[in-house]
Nucleic acid binder design. Sequence first.
RNA 1: GCCCGGGUGGCGGAAUCGGUAGACGCGACGGACUCAAAAUCCGUUGGGCUUCGGCCCUUGAGGGUUCGAAUCCCUCCCCGGGCACCA
Length: 817
Amino acid sequence: MTERYDPGAVETKWQKRWEETRLYNVDIDGAEDPFYNLMMYPYPSAEGLHVGNVYAFTGADIHGRFKQLQGHTVFEPIGFDAFGIHSENFALEKSTHPMELIPSNIKNFTRQLKRMGFMYDWDRMVDVTQPEYYKWTQWIFLQLYKAGLAERRQAPVNWCPSCKTVLANEQVIDGACERCGSEVEQRFLDQWFFKITDYAQRLLDNLEWIDWSDSTKRLQRNWIGRSEGADIDFEIVGHPDKKLRVFTTRPDTLFGATFMVLAPEHPYVAAITTADRRAAVDAYVENVLAMDLVERRKAGEERQKTGVDTGAKALNPVTDEEIRIWVADYVLMEYGHGAIMAVPAHDERDFEFAKSYDLPIRIVVIPADQYEGFDPSAELKQAFTEHTEDEVLVNSGKFDGVPAAKAIREITDWLAEEGRGSHAVNYRIHDWCISRQRYWGPPIPAIHCEKDGVVPVPEEDLPVVLPYVENFKPDESGVGPLARSAEFFNVRCPRCGGPARRETDVSDTFLDSAWYFMRYPSTEKHDVPFDAERTAKWLPVDMYIGGEEHAVLHLMYSRFICMALHDLGHLPFEEPYHRFRKHGLILKEGAKMSKSRGNVVIPDEYVERYGADTFRTYLMFLGPYEEGGDFREQGITGISRFFDRVWDAAAGPLGDGEPETPELEQKLHATIKKVTEDVAGLQYNTAIAAMMEYLNEARAGGRTPRRSEIGPLVVMLAPFAPHLAEELWQRLGHTGSIFTGAHWPAYDEKLAIADQVDVAVQVNGRLRATIRMPRGASEDDVRQKALAEEGVKRHMNGKEIRKVIFVPDRLINIVVG
RNA sequence: GCCCGGGUGGCGGAAUCGGUAGACGCGACGGACUCAAAAUCCGUUGGGCUUCGGCCCUUGAGGGUUCGAAUCCCUCCCCGGGCACCA
């Protein structure tokens, strides 16, 4: 009788050995058949590793180990996303400093991650808060600046009048400051933007060929928000020098444009407003601008649309009618041209507005079957927005009777010919504002000179080191805390040598994470952000696994940065991640985990009690990896028992020879096939179930399995339970690590198939018997045996057979009547 | 409002190119071992009826297609996520 399985002892032993033998430290330059296995590096919170982190990393680690066992050299790096508002706020809350807080958090995370047994190459750890790293984050900024992809312009920020601080959007909850609850105001500040909108179409197009989860692609498509339509120019009565340009997706409704609406911020508002309307317009605009963006959005959802007449008129370019120009806040300056042609008959918002202010509504699109005898005076109860081939135009001059879908093209073509419009595409995605009026981030490497304006920091002066600032709390000045350090911001202009002021904003933490995976293979290279040869060898990432909450921020930004660096000649590829798979979310007893609910699973506690292997495997067992699952305290005992049984079956002395019976051999091959396919497809829960099933069979009747029966199981278990597998591998008589010594088991396709099958026998589609047949039995044989079954005879009741459906090896259905 | 994903035993979940629904595990019940308990092992476990041979019902609800539907189609309900005055 062998001793009991002691996870604690086994895991300590192997973690020590892995470290001593440097098992997971990859020979970056010499590695053959490289596989870059990436997971989303964590933010090192003070609370320590969250079970969500463990879930994400375990699934990714299993994939890495699986690839390793298949013969690849797997590079699995880890780092820490340690800059950002989270850390800064936490430090504020605890009255400590991020520069002290972060290293201790990282230390704790490192301990916890090592305890989980992930195959990280710790020599290549990346901490984005180290000048060694953010030097290159700043370098990326300079490259984008040189290429014209970074620019400074005014933009609104959220301002809390009570805390006297700038807030990030994430800190504004329903229009109020998350800390004090006061209403947030809008301020305009100079900010740095990356022109991601220049890449909108490419970001969209490449989604066609990259191998990503469909749902993630869909989120990105929605975020990019491509709309096709037309730009149309309207003349303004009395202002021959001005053309009012609008974007519309519905040029087919142009004849129904009965008024126009400008956004309150539109530059023409002041110029075209007539004298008698000026007071009203000014009051309205002022009122709207006083609202912050969040409040305005919220107000828009709740209240009726408001607006005001400018008194000015425009000419509808196709009807030549004079139509009124209004200002209303339901038109947004940041989309299209900040102005619209309003077609109340065919747009819900315009309809609502027209009803409120008694503006004319003209129907120009109707269902084709109502075309004959259409009554132009008919009144609409709501906007009619259909515009397919089944709707046709009316009241539209020479386009009467043309199907709407066709008219969209024809009217645009016609306007284009006459120089009054053009085909146009608009995107919903906005430029990426990277400025943060905060402390805990990499300083943006720019200098403001009175004489030379914005001057980028010369590359040889990088990094611009983030100084230790005692008081890093944001204040009412509206600029970042670095503006308090004269030592930091007083500089000489690199161009003219005159007095200048250093940029005191830091960059968004999403810029750090946009390229961290490029740094891993080159961590010890100090003269380049990423070594060209290594980058060519290891990148793009072969597999990236992470949470879908980053689908539109991190994943979009890093694709953009990668594309931009590619275009600037720094990278040989334009998409950073070959494959991306999202993992699901872990719930606790059906509910989301949160501190306030008090139902947070602390990994340490479970690892202590059951061991890392059991915890890892349980997490993978509780649901499909890509969908997540429900963590239940009791469930973990199932895996615990399973591993006890594996241990009992494999840890003691074993018999030699082939698998004892043909049935068991068949089951073994079928299991290898199933587990191989499931693990490759991230279907870990069913892979584990298949291994359990096999073990149950191999141990049936209390027998001890043979070495040949249990060896392959140990290898298949290795990605899930690496420590246990190492120990059993050794006990099976091997020396060295299973991860270098073993190869993922192969299966024989023929042996994987059973030679006896249970065939279902149905009468009129209802199951009446099951018969055991040799695989591949003919329809005649199956039919003969089926008809002899008592239950079948009874239900046929002597009736005539009308039809027989036969599915080989599965089913025969006898239809009588 | 728009776009996704999902609804299966007491529970987590299997099975979707239409072909034996409920794999695997948890829990529960019964038994063995034990002075006893824990652990372990064996058996039972969707619901109802049963003359113990079986029979009927069952995958959110209702309809449809089919020899056959958890799976396909239509209508609807509920839950989760994303976007949202985007012209």
